[in-house]
Nucleic acid binder design. Structure first.
Lengths: 298, 298
DNA sequence: CCAAAATTGCAATGTTCTTTGCACATTCTT
DNA sequence: AAGAATGTGCAAAGAACATTGCAATTTTGG
């Protein structure tokens, strides 16, 4: 199985943890190391600490708790294992002919993303990101399955500290939202495959009201192109009946990444606030407490 | 092929050298960087200097001669290209170098997808698809930004003709939904980066109630793995603070594609019904909408 | 509800690593 | 062959980084 290499990487790291005495913050850090092996392999202790929402000191102490001299020692081990997990299944990549529908879908998405990567003009994304950053408010209109992309974009943009809202729950809400859009606002219309009537209407209305309008779509539609200042074209061809949301999601991701660099201080502050809220509300999962009687907390 | 990727890596590095003015020691160092990319990606300037038989200062100066600010800058570039050559041979040929945050995000997603493409065991997706197809009902639990993936999956699965619902609007609704889950049902937990407490709870509860439980996650967490019959591991590492949703979306897409082939007749019929509804409700855009508001809905 | 233990954050400390000024060596030109 | 220019090494300055002592806060056990 191609999974073995990666599994062994994660298993290995997990096995080093004294199952009982793993402190909450140490566990949080461990999750980051497991889920972001690339960054863990290269980054500094401080970078990983920030990512895990812990103090730098905790990184060192966790490394020591795992049986290493310190962070550098742990990192060296991580590198070796992560790299071998990358190169081990290297041969399996070639078969591009047949396969199950799911494999074909993945390969198609891979192709689409490669195409997108070559075609996309990054200055457009920068323009949009700066517009969102400067806007008093940003509304994302996304209907049908593309609502998912809109939601993700809005969610992460808010996390980055900007007032971005996705309108996904029907034409009534859409009408209400658009009715208060004005100059200084931004509207992003996300529409693939088939344009929804209401999306086009909203885009035109927002434009008429003086807002800046951008569009994410898979086909140059005159209807949207007229209303939009910039149109981002995204390949959305899927294997089956369904258009693929993967490339659109990648654009959303890229957009948020760009947005996060417009005003880094603002974004950092916003993220810190959000993290504070998460822990305050107890949203994150803590490892189950040990059941065995008589075991000492580490 | 490894050769090709390595070649492009080498070509890129060679091309940066000013053809005329390459000093002997700098050339020697360059050979080391080319022949030992792994060490070049991780090692310190001093280590590489010793390997090339040159002084530490030469490393810094060579990096600057190649157009970088210094050794760290060059090394970062080397890492990106070397890792790409490991994880995405077919992609590394193109521009993998510097760029705006948005381009880097796209490239990272591309890498992640390539990794996913090789790592993913398609039989797992088939198992899940068949379970969903056979289930009386399927519930998708997805919190945080990954609610978007859950929504997309549910939306398209419904389109394919299966009763799939995403629970994304808070713990109260989640509790209500889980309370009626039972044998013959399926629960899919989507959770990345940090596990939400309620997601883990829901998965365990559903398992206890006799439902089949599957998980999509970026790190094999024992908390979810214990409850899940199968765990699909998805790379979610993003460029900025935000975890990337792209690979997760690709998996959702692949899953739906697989699902659509389980019972093609059922899916076709469902899609036809949906199309009929769309046109009946006038949802799709037909004519370009005029700029003036008050246009009659199609 | 209090006391003891432990965990985490802050900040100072010590280490490692990169860069750069300066001097010597080598090469190219006149 | 001598002078100029460039390449290279050495060593110190400077920056980044990991580690650890200490204090505050939280958790555990009585």
């Amino acid at each position: 199985m191609t999974e073995r290499a990666t599994d062994s990487f994660q298993d290995w790291l997990r096995d080093r943890a004294p199952e009982r005495g793993l402190r909450p913050k140490a566990a949080a850090l461990l999750e980051v190391l497991l889920s972001q092996p690339r960054r863990a392999s290269f980054g500094s202790a401080a970078e990983l600490a920030q990512l895990a929402g812990v103090n730098v000191a905790t990184v060192t102490r966790t490394a020591q708790a795992l049986g290493f001299a310190g962070w550098p020692a742990l990192q060296q081990e991580l590198r070796a294992r992560y790299l071998s997990s990358l190169s081990a299944p290297q041969v399996a990549a070639e078969h591009s002919g047949e396969g199950s529908p799911s494999s074909r879908s993945l390969r198609r998405d891979l192709d689409s993303l490669a195409l997108l990567n070559r075609r996309l003009d990054e200055s457009v994304l920068r323009t949009i990101a700066e517009a969102v950053a400067a806007a008093g408010r940003t509304v994302i209109v996304a209907d049908g399955s593309y609502a998912a992309v809109g939601m993700a974009l809005a969610h992460n943009a808010r996390l980055a500290g900007y007032p971005v809202a996705a309108v996904t729950s029907g034409d009534a809400e859409l009408a209400n939202t658009v009715s208060v859009i004005g100059p200084g606002d931004v509207l992003i219309a996300i529409s693939f495959w088939r344009l929804y009537e209401s999306t086009v209407l909203a885009a035109n209305e927002a434009r008429a009201r003086g807002a800046r309008v951008f569009a994410l779509t898979d086909a140059a539609s005159p209807a949207l192109a007229d209303a939009a200042e910039e149109v981002v074209m995204v390949p959305a061809e899927g294997v089956a009946f369904f258009p693929s949301l993967t490339a659109g999601m990648a654009v959303a991701q890229a957009l948020v990444t760009q947005l996060a660099t417009v005003d880094p201080a603002r974004t950092s502050a916003s993220i810190e606030r959000a993290e504070g809220m998460w822990s305050k509300f107890g949203l994150l999962h803590r490892r189950p407490a040990p059941h065995a009687p008589g075991d000492e907390p580490g």
